[in-house]
Design a protein around this nucleic acid. Structure first.
Length: 224
DNA sequence: CCAGACGTTGTT
DNA sequence: GTCTGG
DNA sequence: CCAGACGTTGTT
DNA sequence: GTCTGG
């Protein structure tokens, strides 16, 4: 699962890394929560060029009567994404990359919960395989997205049994391209990222509150 | 035919 | 919108 | 994901 | 317990 993550990278770095254009502004984030506006890489609907835009995290299907449904749609299971009514049309034509550089998972220890931060060994930014939709409320179109999950790798599994799909660079072009329709190849991209390219450490439980969006959220702590 | 769901996770 | 269940 | 609210009426 | 809000 993935219900909280970080994006500390600068926009310039992301634009360069993904050869993308953007008109947004962002500041470093240490605790991104569902329902917030998050930076997403996709192909422009008209231009076909890579662009980074802001979307609400929590996918609102086009047919929804009410945006509240988005609170439940923060993740999509890779195993069933193709069949679920809420996700299948986006899986065909509206794939994206949700930009990040770390994610949190909570380990349940009886009634206590211990959060851990997971990131790449070098701390570099990356992207989650994601889907997006447009939903129209009155005359106001709203774009929203979800993060695809898969089974945990060896580094994650004793904290939690699911993890977000970190998309391998080599798959990005086909993943973003709405014309690419090899379903089996798309699904094969939705695999756990290799453990040996990741690191983890425990962090302060204050990350639980979305109000705490500060550097202390990503500092290692000693468990005692 | 119409009505109702459409999601993931964790816990019991 | 589209599918499942009654 | 976790945290926090969860209600109505009347008065200031 | 369940839903909303961030």
């Amino acid at each position: 699962m993935c219900g909280r993550y970080t994006l500390r990278a600068r926009l310039n770095q992301l634009l360069q890394m993904y050869s993308a254009q953007s008109e947004i502004e962002i500041s470093p984030r240490y605790n991104i929560a569902p329902s917030q506006k998050v930076p997403v890489l996709r192909l422009g609907e008209d231009s076909g060029m890579r662009e980074i835009v802001l979307m609400r995290w929590g996918l609102i299907p086009s047919w929804a009567k009410d945006e509240k449904i988005g609170y439940k749609m923060i993740n999509a299971r890779s195993e069933t994404i193709q069949e679920k009514p809420s996700y299948r049309s986006a899986f065909k034509r509206r794939r994206c990359l949700v930009l990040a550089d770390g994610f949190f998972e909570w380990q349940r220890q009886g009634s206590k919960k211990q959060p851990y931060l997971f990131q790449k060994k070098d701390g570099a930014p990356y992207g989650y395989a994601g889907l997006w939709e447009t939903w129209t409320k009155g005359h106001q179109p709203m774009q929203s997205c979800t993060i695809i999950t898969t089974t945990a790798n060896e580094l994650v599994e004793d904290v939690h049994d699911r993890m977000p799909v970190i998309l391998q660079e080599r798959h990005l072009e086909n993943w973003l391209n709405p014309e690419f329709d090899h379903v089996d190849r798309l699904k094969a991209m939705l695999a756990p990222y290799p453990s040996d390219e990741m690191q983890r450490y425990p962090v302060d439980p204050m990350v639980g509150s979305p109000k705490n969006d500060k550097p202390e959220c990503v500092e290692p702590i000693e468990l005692g």
